[in-house]
């Protein structure tokens, strides 16, 4: 009853190539649900089927209780879409685009005017509505598209790679608007993305999709936890690691200890709250910790864990995970 989207073995093939492979999922009302996957994983295809743009090869799906094949128009009435590629008339102004959309959805004049004002307000587009779209920045154009997407009071808003090609600021900005829409208007949001931070920041639940298949589906928190433990890197001022290692191993929440380059790496069951404990522990042994660093697995690690090779192959070795982390965080900054 509370499911806004239900799919059962939803499948799409293109000339024998399986783009979406037996996807079964439920999305509840008011949820922000993300499809996370690399390019070509089948995210967009999945969304296109749910939006009635493509027909599934097999399987079934319901959006707002309507079948996506047999009740297309009913589905279309209750959804809003922001496409991956720009799909806004650049010759018209933002307001004209919104007006146009409202008319296509049969909103009468009064409702139309009220609603257009409302969404312009909501997305802070006031003052830009009479600019031609071609003169707006990429972020603003995108915001107009989002505004248009939920103009017709959709129950579900589909966002296909909403922040693709936006700069960091515009992206952050758009995230907050998306969050606000979900919280303020209670819209269920389905989004596809290949940005980890985006899925992590926005989604209540994430489905990691690879080669058309859902390989994992859970909250970002739980997904991250499945990859592994947090890591603490510890540097001791004195050189007495040998005895310390043995002592640390006695602590229940420390799963693994490995010395490396004069520091110790601990896999721990827990987070920041363990750091004081660790310091006390060292103190009681007359040792001074000169530096502590905590590393948490990111959604990216989870992602690699489920889709790729790296993490899974090297699970055993803390060193390898460490190296992988260093590489990635080094590459990011």
């Amino acid at each position: 009853m509370n499911s806004v989207i239900e799919t059962e073995n939803l499948t799409k093939e293109f000339d024998g190539l399986v783009a979406v492979d037996h996807i079964t999922l439920n999305v509840g009302k008011g949820e922000v649900f993300g499809f996370l996957g690399p390019n070509g994983a089948g995210k967009t295809t999945a969304v296109k089927m749910l939006c009635t743009i493509l027909n599934p090869t097999s399987g079934a799906a319901k959006v707002c209780g309507h079948d996506i094949v047999r009740q297309r128009d009913e589905v279309r009435e209750c959804i809003g879409i922001v496409f991956q590629d720009k799909a806004i008339d650049t010759f018209l102004t933002g307001k004209e685009n919104l007006d146009f959309h409202a008319r296509m959805y049969h909103l009468d004049r009064k409702t139309r005017e009220a609603r257009v004002t409302e969404v312009l307000d909501l997305l802070d587009l006031k003052g830009k509505e009479n600019m031609r779209i071609s003169e707006c920045s990429g972020g603003t154009q995108r915001r107009f598209e989002v505004a248009r997407g939920f103009l017709n009071h959709p129950k579900v808003l589909f966002l296909d790679e909403p922040t693709l090609g936006l700069d960091v600021q515009a992206r952050r900005n758009l995230w907050d608007y998306i969050k606000m829409l979900n919280e303020k208007e209670g819209i269920t949001i389905i989004l596809t993305t290949h940005y980890m931070e985006e899925a992590d920041y926005l989604c209540h639940r994430v489905a990691i999709i690879d080669h058309g298949r859902i390989v994992a589906m859970d909250t970002p928190e739980k997904l991250k936890r499945t990859v592994g433990l947090n890591l603490i890197s510890l540097q001791i001022a004195q050189d007495s690691s040998g005895s310390l290692v043995d002592a640390l191993k006695q602590l229940g929440w420390i799963k693994k200890v490995e010395p490396r380059d004069g520091s110790l790496e601990l896999s721990i069951d827990g987070g920041e709250e363990k750091i004081p404990e660790l310091i006390d522990f060292a103190d009681s042994r007359g040792l001074v910790i000169s530096s502590v660093k905590l590393y948490k697995p990111s959604l990216e690690d989870t992602f690699l864990h489920y889709t790729g090779k790296t993490i899974r192959e090297q699970e055993g070795s803390v060193m390898e995970i460490w190296k992988a982390w260093m590489r990635r965080s080094g590459g990011r900054r």
Partner: peptide
């Protein structure tokens, strides 16, 4: 090509 049609074609019209 420029995507505008998509928006029109998913409208309930």
């Amino acid at each position: 090509e420029f995507g505008f049609l998509k928006e029109v074609l998913v409208a309930p019209v």
